[in-house]
């Protein structure tokens, strides 16, 4: 073979090596990147934190005895069960909202009603919001009377 033929042969030989090298490099990059986590989904945790805050905080819907500075968990004060109390306690934000209903009493309140309706409409959209629901057996304090009820909670998070 002459010199030109040898050079051509070597160049031709090099092309599959380059292709193989590219495939291997891209595979390594793809495998490394597939193990890199970029999204942390805390929507469920955030929803439960909000629920617990509404139910157990002295500024929420729970019965709170000021004289002894005690919150009674599991007892809902009907006088506190209103939207204004929730919005007075927690500043409304854009990414989370809640709806609470007392089934037997037939009462319903919202934290961030406008946002709740917007996010609720985005539930079935890809990349939209997520709804977390929960139910609790509670006692409702209406004046001096205690009645049993079911508290249904729905939280939507963007």
């Amino acid at each position: 073979m002459n010199k030109k033929a040898i050079i051509s042969f070597n160049v031709m030989n090099f092309i599959p090596k380059i292709i193989f090298l590219v495939v291997v490099v891209l595979s390594i990059v793809f495998i490394v990147k597939s193990f890199v986590v970029t999204d942390i989904d805390i929507r469920s945790a955030e929803a439960y934190v909000l629920i617990n805050r509404i139910i157990y905080s002295p500024y929420g819907i729970a019965y709170y005895d000021k004289s002894i500075d005690r919150v009674y968990p599991g007892i809902i004060d009907l006088a506190n069960f209103n939207t204004q109390r929730l919005e007075k306690a927690i500043v409304p934000v854009e990414h989370i909202a809640a709806k609470l209903s007392l089934v037997n009493q037939g009462k319903r309140i919202f934290y961030n009603e406008g946002t709740y309706n917007n996010l609720y409409s985005m539930l079935n959209v890809e990349g939209g919001s997520k709804e977390i629901t929960n139910e609790l057996y509670v006692l409702v304090k209406d004046g001096d009377k205690l009645k049993s009820d079911i508290l249904h909670m729905s939280v939507v998070v963007k």
Binding site: N52, R53, Y56
Partner: peptide, 14 residues
């Protein structure tokens, strides 16, 4: 995210 959730939780304590 963790610290924000902790703040939200501590807000609720009586």
């Amino acid at each position: 995210r963790d610290v924000a959730l902790i703040i939200d939780t501590i807000y609720a304590s009586p």
